[in-house]
Amino acid sequence: MRNYKHLRVSPTYFIVISLFYSTCLFAQQNNKQANSQNDFWEKVQFGGGIGLGFGSGYTDISLAPSAIYNFNQYVALGLGAQYKYLKQKDFYASHLYGASIIGLLNPIQEIQISAELEQLRVNVNLDGTRSNSQNFWNTALFIGAGYRSGYATVGARYNILSDRNSIYGSAFMPFVRVYF
């Protein structure tokens, strides 16, 4: 049996070794945290729409930014904001603003199915009188499908909550959706 009494290990040696290993462990932990944050932003896509329409005494300007988070290649969920200004000369001016939640399902790469809940505040000022101005909330629930290629999806959606008082001219609407 060997005698190890002549080997003495100084406390400094233990401190240096402990610091070395703890630094390695913290570095690995910080790397995992940084990677998880990077993984989150790699799955986020930004997009939306911009619209401009001008005619004889008519103006239509809209801005609708949105962002989605891709849980995997099949499912994404996102939020959007919307602002729209409409004006018909000598008749009315309207401001619409609000938010939406969108869910996307891609059963195959080329097909996209969507459900979008939209809540808009509508402010309509009729020209010539303030007493006929209207302020109300409009809720829409769109179910849609489209063909997807690259960053863009072209399709149609249907507002299942549509009635004769809806702010939209029709319950059925085409769309172009782009996310980068």
Rank of each mutant, 00 (worst) to 15 (best):
I17T: 12
S18P: 02
S18R: 15
F20Y: 11
F20M: 05
T23F: 02
T23H: 09
C24Q: 15
C24W: 04
L25K: 10
L25C: 11
Q28S: 05
Q28P: 00
Q29F: 11
N30P: 02
N30V: 05
N31D: 06
K32G: 06
N35F: 07
N35H: 07
S36V: 08
S36P: 01
Q37H: 11
Q37C: 07
Q37P: 00
N38M: 08
D39I: 08
D39Q: 13
D39Y: 11
F40Y: 05
W41D: 05
W41V: 13
K43A: 04
Q45V: 00
Q45D: 09
G47M: 03
G49S: 12
G49C: 05
I50H: 00
I50Y: 08
L52E: 01
L52N: 00
G53T: 07
S56K: 10
S56I: 10
G57C: 05
G57S: 07
Y58E: 01
Y58S: 09
T59G: 06
D60F: 11
D60T: 08
D60M: 09
I61W: 10
S62V: 03
L63F: 12
L63A: 08
A64F: 04
A64E: 11
A64N: 13
P65F: 04
S66T: 06
S66C: 10
A67M: 13
A67C: 01
A67N: 07
A67Q: 05
I68H: 01
I68L: 01
Y69I: 05
F71M: 14
N72H: 13
Q73L: 13
Y74I: 15
Y74W: 14
Y74R: 14
Y74E: 13
V75L: 15
A76E: 02
L77S: 08
L79E: 03
L79G: 11
G80P: 03
G80W: 05
G80L: 04
A81W: 06
Q82P: 01
K84C: 03
Y85F: 11
L86P: 04
L86R: 10
L86M: 09
L86E: 14
L86G: 06
L86W: 12
K87R: 15
Q88I: 12
K89D: 12
F91H: 14
F91N: 13
F91V: 15
Y92D: 12
A93I: 03
A93M: 09
S94T: 13
H95N: 11
Y97H: 01
Y97I: 08
Y97N: 02
G98W: 02
A99D: 09
A99N: 04
S100Q: 06
